[in-house]
């Protein structure tokens, strides 16, 4: 198989794996990790598919997009972690109270 598609499939796998963990785990730190894994999955799809033309140089535009995405992800992670500590300080737990959906 063309390795581009292999990595893109791994990206899809990471995306769904992260989504599962995001829904199932209650601890906020795990949810934040899960979001990061999902983001890695999306980035992998974006870049892997850029290399799928055999024998051609990869398309630099998705590369730039992913670098942008990585910086956005680290910003969001920093904000989320600080907020998690606030939740901890206010409620005594690093989890959200009952999910309103259930």
């Amino acid at each position: 198989m063309n390795p581009a598609f292999l990595y893109a499939l791994v990206g899809v796998g990471l995306f769904t794996l992260g989504l599962y963990a995001l829904i199932v785990h209650a601890h906020l730190l795990r949810k934040i990790l899960a979001i990061n894994v999902m983001a890695s999955g999306v980035f992998l799809v974006l870049v892997a598919l850029a290399t799928r033309t055999q024998g051609a140089a990869p398309d630099p535009v998705p590369h730039a997009m992913v670098i942008t995405g990585i910086v956005v992800a680290v910003s969001a992670t920093a904000l989320a972690l600080a907020l998690m500590l606030r939740v901890r300080a206010e409620t005594g737990r690093a989890e959200l109270a009952e999910e309103p959906l259930e």
């Binding site: 499939l9 769904t16 598919l49 850029a50 033309t53 055999q54 140089a57």
Partner: peptide, 17 residues
Amino acid sequence: GLGYAVLTLPSQAPGLS
């Protein structure tokens, strides 16, 4: 579904290289 969608993409990338 997503995997299928990815695999059906044309093998020539229509990118901006």
